[in-house]
């Protein structure tokens, strides 16, 4: 049994410790917002926060995440209202939408560490996230909008603090 804390909930999962965190999150825990795109840390669709860092869950063994704090797109905010999510909605960034869980999780780390990113900062933070629909110009613009939103309203919906052990 491996104990995982995902979006402030504790899960006990009976899996091979070498299983990538991605497949545990998607297929065992059932949170499918985190996507599989390449399996080799090339595309960023599987990005989750591990202790606040934008790790690629497809190459992260579940054992690395044991007892650590994991946040997925479902847990980024309680009401789909993290500044990055709101900015994404404000200018309709996604097209097919498949990559955007990962894009948003990466952008959230960028904005936490750099509240005023330049275009270059954005490029350096976001180049690990591929968007096949090519929404990159909007991603850049939305991050600037989110930076402004973050300044005017710092409180964003936080996931409710619940710890409910779930047996899988």
């Amino acid at each position: 049994m491996i104990s995982l804390n995902v979006n402030q909930k504790t899960y006990q999962v009976d899996v091979d410790p070498n299983m990538p965190l991605l497949w545990v999150i998607r297929d065992i825990i059932g949170l499918t917002g985190t996507k599989y795109g390449c399996g080799v840390a090339q595309c960023g669709a599987c990005t989750v926060h591990l202790n606040g860092e934008a790790v690629r869950s497809c190459v992260t063994k579940v054992s690395r995440a044991e007892g650590q704090k994991i946040v997925t797109i479902e847990g980024l905010s309680a009401n789909n209202d993290h500044p990055v999510q709101r900015a994404w909605q404000e200018i309709d960034v996604p097209q097919c939408g498949y990559c955007h869980s990962g894009q948003i999780m990466s952008a959230a780390v960028l904005l936490r560490e750099n509240p005023n990113p330049t275009d270059q900062d954005i490029d350096e933070a976001m180049s690990g996230n591929i968007c096949r629909c090519g929404t990159y110009l909007r991603i850049r613009k939305a991050i600037h909008i989110a930076a402004e939103m973050q300044k005017t309203k710092s409180n964003t919906g936080q996931t409710k603090n619940s710890v409910s052990p779930v047996k899988i």
Partner: peptide, 17 residues
């Protein structure tokens, strides 16, 4: 930097493949 830190992809050990 930011969402592109080495350890976001580079694990403590090699990834198979």
């Amino acid at each position: 930097l930011y969402a592109a830190k080495c350890s976001n992809c580079h694990q403590p050990t090699n990834v198979p493949g």
